[in-house]
Every structure is written in C-alpha cells, then in structure tokens.
Amino acid sequence: MAYALQQLINGLTLGSMYGLIAIGYTMVYGIIGMINFAHGDIFMVSAFIAVTCFTLLAAADVSSIPLALMFVLMVTIFFTSAYGWAVERVAYRPLRGSTRLAPLISAIGMSIFLQNTVQLTQGARVKPIPPVIEGGIELWAAPDFTVQIGWSQLLIIVTTVVLMTAFTWMITRTPFGRQQRACEQDRTMAALLGVNVDRTISLTFMLGASLAAVAGVMVSVYYGVVDFFIGFLAGIKAFTAAVLGGIGSLPGAMLGGLLIGLIESFWAAYLWAEYKDVATFGILCLVLMLRPSGLLGRPEVEKV
C-alpha cells in the first residue's frame, strides 16, 4: 500500500513533466494542424540551458534557492522561446500551405540538427549537476516502507497545476487566446478580420517552447543529469500523452501526461521495468482503437 502510494507520487511527478511538454505539442497542433517534431529537442536544449545557468549560479555562490530557481526559470524560458521562434520561422513558415508531409520532414531535420548541435557544442557526455533541492516531507511511515514526497516533486506538481490553470485561462479568456482560437478555426478568415496570423503562430510556438523550458528546468532539478538524447524519448512520450488526451485539447494533454506518467511508474514498479515504454505505446494503441479521437478530443467530422 505504502509502496503503491509512493509510485502514485512518482507517477504524478513524471506525468506533470510529460504534461508540460505535451501542451506544447497540442497547442501547435491546434493552431497549424501539424506535429512539431522538434519540440522534444527544444525541451532538451532548455534542459542544457538550465544546467548552464545552475552551474553559473553555483560559481557565483548564490545560496537562496527560490531566487536561484526564479532566475534559472526566467533565463531558460527566454532563450528557449527564442529557439521555439526560430524553429517555426525556419522549418514551418516557409512551408505553410504546402503538403502536410513537408513540414513534418523539415521538423524531423530540425530535430536531428538540434540534437547534433548540442552534441557538438556541449559535448556528448552526460551532464550532472549537484542536487538543487534536497529533502522532502515524510507522509506516512509504514512499518516496512516510508512514503515520501520530495520538495522537488512537490514543486513540479504545484508548478504544473499553476501553469495549467494559467494557460487554460489565457486560451479561454484573453484577447490572445481568442486570436489563437480564431486562427485555429479558419486562418484566412482570421487574417481578414485583422488577426496577425504570423504573429499568433509564432507566439504559440514560443509559448509551447516556454512550457518545455519549465519542464527542462524541472528535469534538471529532479534528475540532476542531462544529455543530448533526452529529447527524443521525452518528445514521443509527451506526444503520446497529447494524442491520448485528444490532440488540440489543453486539459486533454495534461490528463494524457498524468496517465502516461502513472502507467509508466506503476508498470516499472510492479511488472517489467525494461518494457515500460512498450506499455505506454500499447495502451496508446488500445485507447486509439477504442476512442480514435483521444480521451477528451472532439471526434473530427469530415465534411465532403
């Protein structure tokens, strides 16, 4: 029981991170109807930026953890959203209005490019950073097992909930959200009515990248190691999460992320750890067979 509770906490933490990355996929998909294949690698770049920042701060002897975290988050979000912008500008904007597959290929190229850039400029070795936040709360001391929630886990879950609420509010209530939904429905019509479509799409990519940046900082805090290949698996898991929840739906991405996180940690804890990715994809296949538009997605009605 205690062990299961611990897995629940670990799963929620993992799921929150997947959810944060998944929102980036789902928002981009919502607005241009395409998978941003380079999103996982943007997440990876952000984790590297976070590691550099933490190392800089450690060298500067900054001891206040909240201050350090705020600084790292801001710097990482700033630079990562520049990467999000650049990916859209280089790999997507010139191809808007061409076949559906063309941007997919250019994004895969972008992803290979980013991975190799990081490998070349930052080195292929794993980057470890000393633990930033240590300790936690003991929730329940069962005779044979102590359930614990680490401060970093708490931080990840709380940040995710806050960001999730903020983004849902932004999409449903603010002028920007309205413009974004307008572009989603009909880009030409939105442009005719005075929405700056290019700007809206760029901003969407930047916002997606910012959330990936938050996830990147969290990953470097939680695991303490980063390498140039983490983007691939995190990317496809997060995309799986977005599809599972129903692509295009913000709460769906979050729900999908949490589900994937939970499935993964329970499967690894009770069944075979080496087949946890098989479980993720297997369940994705099952869900899509039974509910092809995802859990919270609206079924797509194709008009003839």
Binding site: I105, I108, G109, M110, F113, L114, Q115, N116, L120
Partner: peptide, 8 residues
C-alpha cells in the same frame, strides 16, 4: 548536423 540541415 549537415544531414539535418540539408533535410530542412
């Protein structure tokens, strides 16, 4: 790196 750039 070249390969990725060429694809794009």
């Amino acid at each position: 790196l070249l390969f990725g750039a060429a694809m794009v």
